[in-house]
Structure formats: C-alpha cells, structure tokens
Amino acid sequence: MWIYEKKLQYPVRVSTCNPKLAKYLIEQYGGADGELAAALRYLNQRYSIPDKVIGLLTDIGTEELAHLEMIATMVYKLTKDATPEQLKEAGLDAHYVNHDRALFYHNAAGVPWTATYIQAKGDPIADLYEDIAAEEKARATYQWIINMSDDPDLNDGLRFLREREIIHAQRFREAVEILKEERDRKKFF
C-alpha cells in the first residue's frame, strides 16, 4: 500500500502568476515522458520483473508520484490568480473552457494522457531500456522548459527535477548490469 506524506519532496516556489509557463509544464504532468507516465510505467512493470530490481522500480515509481505533486503545485501556483483573459493570452483558452483552472492529465498541446505512452514488454532488459530512455527524454524536456522559463524560483524546482531524472537513469543502468550479471551466472533451460 501507499502512505501519503503531507509535504512536497522539494520546495516549489514561483515568482509570478504565469499561465504561459503552466502550459509548458503540463507536458510533464500528462505528457508521454511526464511524471504520471513514469510512475505508472515503473509501478506496473514491477510485477513481472526479476526480484533483484523490484525494489528499485517500487522506489523510483513512488518518487515519481512525489514529482507529479511538485509539477501539479507549480501549475496550480502559476495559474491560480490568472484571469480568463490572461489564460486566453497564454493559449489556455481551450483548457479554461473545459476545465476552468482545474488540472488535467494532458500534454502541452492539450492531448489527453493515454496508456499507449507506456510499455510493458515483460522482457526485463527491454523494459529497463525503455525506462532509461524515458528518464533521458524527461531530462531533456525539463531542460527545454527551463530554457523557455524566465522565473528563477520555478527554475530552482525544475533543476531539482532534471537532476532526479539523471539519477534515475543511472540507477536503471545499474539495474541492467545487475540483471546481465545474473543472466550470465544462471543456467537457462
């Protein structure tokens, strides 16, 4: 089971109301390489992966849920005081019509999240390679968002998230090596 903790993993601050940045950030909420996709991808792969890496998938999957909450907090803080006019200017008019200021799992272009963003091949090496690629893509996305952002407070949180992607990718690479070592030691039938 999971137990919620009433705090963010890392402080989230924003300098000003800025719905345009929220529009970019939503990519990491409901996009293909976003935090929701990451959490669901890893937590779902756990059941059929070799025992040696179940702990890692559990722990990284759980951390992704904490990142999802950080992104949600960023989007919430960037939009909560925005007028409909400001939302329209930021290109969030269609979002506003459908959701007001509620968050929704879609990407920066408004495409709703879909399970087809994640894979579960049942082949441990294939699954872990997908995970490494997902982390690298998420890292790149954070960099593109930082490049688009002029909010130093927001960027502090985004840099933290970008660094976490690097660590996760590193740990997944080590998991691949652990499985290869096991494979080479074991006899297969």
Binding site: K7, L8, Q9, Y10, P11, V53, G55, L56, D59, I60, E63, I167, H168, R171, E174, A175, I178
Partner: peptide, 25 residues
C-alpha cells in the same frame, strides 16, 4: 515552519537518494 520543513526535506532527500543507491548497491 519553512525552516523546519526544509530541514525535513533535506534529510528526506538524503534518505531517498540512499534508498535508490542501496537498491543497486
């Protein structure tokens, strides 16, 4: 509040980081 929260977040960060590290080491 913010000071204590940040202290907790700092220790928790080290614990998350060590958890992932120990999962593979």
């Amino acid at each position: 509040y913010y000071e204590l929260l940040e202290k907790l977040q700092a220790v928790d960060f080290a614990l998350v980081e060590l958890t992932l590290y120990l999962d593979t080491h």
